[in-house]
Design a protein around this nucleic acid. Structure first.
Length: 674
DNA sequence: TATCGAGTAAACATTA
DNA sequence: GTAATGTTTACTCGAT
């Protein structure tokens, strides 16, 4: 017992070292799975709902415009009559950016949720983003309408008090001009969108639903609003002029997120100040900030303008300032870029906040003994879809695993549903019998580990893998595909918090498995004994559980394809290389290599089952192996070879001398080695 | 119910 | 002698 604890302590030291992050993948993949589990309907719903919102916005805007026109006509006809409503609602108390929080707009949280759940395709997200932008523009226009209307009413009140017919007539004239300018704004808006598309800030896919141009054309970009605002307001009282100089600037900001202390905007986005930078990005203020910090500018670094999409080389800071003031002045393009950048930042912030929140919830949950029902997410590895396929097609709901408690599990890109993979409570310690994924000899892959890395590193949840799989994974992850026992121990403690406790138990189990399974080969070298994996033996261990239904096998393979972005990446990588699953290229990338190994093994197994059921061919060799034999360990012909790395030998580099038909059962490697 | 795989525990041997 | 390592056996449990 003492020795075990001593080793455990030593192992813990190394276990704390690695803290690489993999949580995002984990979280996103989990969300993806949740999204998939709900089917494809939500994506469509969101899209249609958003379109409906756009239409609602459009209609509301039309009504507002009509009302405004009617009011203006009434004002022109009735002259000095002012509506009663104006008496009750002073014009200057109109909150700005209220429209930003109108329920028609998808809130950032909702957008965040949509993004995280990945229920929308990139194209749909693009459309959604554009629609949101259109809505924002619409709302900005509405705000402007409101303000303008209230300004007019205020002016009318003043005129009514002062009896100034000339100014009154002037205002009416300006109102007409305002209406005409609105029409121009719509055209400008279209140009603005086209400009965005040209800059690559907005992309509209050919097959994409047409962008709701009409709502967009009803919007107004800040510059135009500012200009219009100046034109409309500057001719009046000096108080208005001076006051609106500031207001005009704020209006620009308001169009984005409201620089005014709007509670709603603050509630909506705690980082609303970020958006307010739009109003700061005037050349004047840039110059001022530069005077304070002579050679420090967030948009300038390494002699390059860091304005998004610019990267213009500026020899010195002065030239940069010149470039900044000339190329990135307050114009349509800069405003659009600013807005896009703002949205990017906003989305990133929201993403971060959401992930933080989720992490916090996870951590909080994991520290509470969970008593959730079995339907909670299970820690499934990459190939759990195989299990699902099997379970969905063969197993009945009654065959659900008996899991006393189900902790919040690592979210992996697997599917939900009946699974043989079970977990115990995260603090479960002791001889809890359970079935793991290795029941189907499911090997874990680096992708699995990577996706659940943070979870298993921090949570004392028993990994849903057999000792054999874990040992194999540890060995395969090593550079030379061989590890000493102690290194295996360290890998366990490093990768899994669960194995930082009860070292005596699991270490004994590790040793037991190493000795028990023929797939683990002990190799003596100068430094001592190392353990390697005999992949052939490991394949032989695969039980033939799955019936040879070709459709099932197809489903299994299909499920792989839809399993995870990592899978997609793998497939892309494979497609890129035009290679089978196991190649030198994949081996060059350890993660991809192991992932390929995992999938290949799954497919091998599936095919193997199929073949073994269809014909009593040798179960020890899968068809893929026949084509691409995977030789894991090649026995050294002489003792000196044993000193070299006994790494996995794949098709690309495996020795032709290897006897594929060698029966490891009849000729145990262990004996040869020793 | 039998069988099998897996986990756990323990005893024992070997080696550094 | 001790600790680490390796082997083997026995037992239990869950799934088939």
């Amino acid at each position: 017992m003492m020795q075990e604890s001593g080793t455990e302590t030593k192992s813990n030291g190394s276990a704390i070292q690695n803290g690489s992050s993999g949580g995002n993948h984990l979280l996103e993949c989990g969300s993806l799975r949740e999204g998939r589990s709900n089917g494809e309907t939500p994506a469509v719903d969101v899209g249609t709902a958003d379109l409906a919102h756009v239409q609602q916005q459009q209609q509301a805007l039309q009504v507002a415009r009509q009302l405004l026109l009617q009011q203006q006509q009434q004002q022109q006809v009735s002259g000095l009559k002012s509506p009663k409503r104006n008496d009750k609602q002073p014009a200057l108390q109109v909150p700005v950016s209220v429209a930003m929080m109108t329920p028609q707009v998808i809130t950032p949280q909702q957008m965040q949720q949509i993004l995280q759940q990945q229920v929308l395709s990139p194209q749909q997200l693009q459309v959604l983003l554009q629609q949101q932008q259109a809505l924002m523009l619409q709302q900005q226009l509405q705000e402007f309408y409101k303000k303008q209307q209230e300004q007019l009413q205020l002016q009318l009140l003043q005129q009514h008090a002062g009896k100034q017919p000339k100014e009154q007539q002037q205002v009416a004239t300006q109102q007409l001009a305002f209406q005409q300018q609105l029409l121009q704004m719509q055209q400008l808006q279209q140009q603005h969108l086209l400009s965005l598309q040209r800059q690559g800030l907005l992309t509209i896919q050919p097959g994409q639903p047409a962008l709701p141009l009409q709502p967009l054309t009803q919007g107004m970009i800040p510059t135009e609003l500012q200009q219009l605002w100046k034109e409309v307001t500057s001719a009046h009282t000096t108080e208005e002029t001076t006051g609106n100089n500031h207001s005009s600037l704020d209006l620009t900001t308001t169009c984005v997120s409201s620089s005014a202390p709007s509670k709603t905007s603050l509630i909506m986005n705690p980082h609303a100040s970020t958006n307010g930078q739009l109003s700061v990005h005037t050349p004047k203020r840039e110059s001022l900030s530069h005077e304070e910090h002579p050679h420090s500018h967030p948009l300038y670094g390494h002699g390059v303008c860091k304005w998004p999409g610019c990267e213009a080389v500026c020899e010195d800071f002065q030239s940069f300032l010149k470039h900044l003031n000339s190329e990135h002045a307050l114009d349509d393009r800069s405003t659009a870029q600013c807005r896009v950048q703002m949205q990017v930042v906003q989305q990133l912030e929201l993403q971060l906040a959401k992930d933080k929140e989720r992490l916090q919830a996870m951590m909080t949950h994991l520290h509470v003994k969970s008593t959730e029902p079995k339907t909670a997410p299970q820690p499934l590895n990459l190939v759990s879809s195989v299990t699902l396929s099997k379970s969905a097609s063969e197993a009945s709901p009654q065959s659900l695993p008996h899991t006393p408690t189900t902790p919040t599990a690592p979210i992996t890109p697997a599917t939900q549903g009946p699974s043989v993979i079970t977990t115990t409570s995260m603090h479960t310690v002791g001889p809890i019998r359970r079935r793991y994924s290795d029941k189907y000899n499911v090997p874990i892959s680096s992708a699995d580990i990577a996706q659940n890395q943070e979870f298993y590193k921090n949570a004392e949840v028993r990994p849903p893998f057999t000792y054999a799989s874990l040992i194999r994974q540890a060995i395969l992850e090593s550079p030379e595909k061989q590890l000493t026992l102690n290194e295996i121990y360290n890998w366990f403690t490093r990768m899994f918090a669960y194995f930082r406790r009860n070292a005596a138990t699991w270490k004994n189990a590790v040793r037991h498995n190493l000795s028990l399974h023929k797939c683990f080969v002990r190799v003596e070298n100068v430094k001592g004994a190392v353990w390697t994996v005999d992949e052939v033996e490991f394949q032989k261990r695969r039980p033939q559980k799955i019936s040879g239904n070709p459709s099932l096998i197809k489903n299994m393979q299909t499920s792989h394809a839809y399993c995870t972005p990592l899978n997609a990446a793998l497939q892309a990588s494979m497609a890129e290389n035009s290679i089978p699953l196991y190649t030198t290229a994949s081996m060059g990338n350890p993660t991809l290599g192991n992932l390929a190994s995992a999938i290949r093994e799954e497919l091998n197994g599936a095919m193997e089952h199929t073949n073994s059921n269809e014909s009593d061919s040798s179960p020890g060799r899968s068809p893929l192996q026949a084509v691409h034999p995977v030789h894991v360990k090649e026995e050294p012909l002489d003792p000196e070879e044993a000193e070299g790395p006994l790494s996995l030998v794949t098709t690309a580099n495996h020795s032709p001398d290897f006897d594929h038909d060698r029966d490891y059962e009849d000729e145990p490697v262990n004996e040869d080695m020793e």
